Computed example of a mutant assay.
Amino acid sequence: MDVQDYVAAIVFGALIGIAARAVLPGRQNIGVIPTVLIGMGAALAGTWASDRWNVHSDLHFTVTGRTFDWAVIGVQIGIAVVGVAIAALLVKAFSTDRVRD
């Protein structure tokens, strides 16, 4: 893992955050910017975790000369889904826009 791998993970993380939000069922009351930031953090965490736990597959794809591993992408999306779900729960728990009965 070199610095370029982590930079690519941050850039790719924006897409991962949006994908995680699409995969998560129901409506999430968090904005686009927090979603993208969660995706970036998940991409970094997923890259680190995959490297530490040696999670890799033989299935790869290439974008502009950089090769990505599908197993690592799966770990990243999984972490992003959990992150978006936690953020949505926290926003709902601390929201002041509750309907009064």
Rank of each mutant, 00 (worst) to 15 (best):
V3M: 13
Q4T: 12
D5M: 10
Y6N: 03
V7K: 05
A8R: 08
A9E: 04
V11H: 01
V11Q: 03
V11A: 10
G13L: 11
G13C: 07
G13Q: 10
I16M: 11
I16A: 10
A19H: 09
A20H: 04
A22Y: 10
A22R: 14
V23M: 14
R27M: 03
R27P: 02
Q28A: 09
V32R: 13
V32K: 14
I33W: 12
I33L: 15
V36W: 03
V36K: 11
L37V: 13
L37F: 08
L37R: 09
M40A: 07
G41V: 07
G41T: 05
G41I: 08
G41Q: 08
A43V: 07
L44T: 11
L44Y: 02
A45G: 05
T47C: 06
T47G: 11
W48I: 15
W48C: 05
A49G: 02
S50G: 13
W53D: 00
N54P: 00
N54T: 14
H56I: 14
H56P: 00
H56M: 11
H56W: 14
S57P: 00
S57C: 01
L59D: 10
H60G: 00
F61P: 00
G65W: 06
R66M: 10
T67N: 06
D69T: 06
A71V: 08
V72A: 03
V72I: 14
I73K: 01
G74L: 07
I77G: 00
I79S: 00
A80V: 01
A80C: 02
A80D: 02
G83F: 01
V84Q: 04
A85I: 00
I86G: 05
L89C: 08
L90A: 15
L90R: 09
V91A: 15
K92Q: 11
K92Y: 03
A93S: 13
S95A: 14
S95I: 04
T96E: 10
D97N: 13
V99I: 14
R100G: 12
R100T: 13
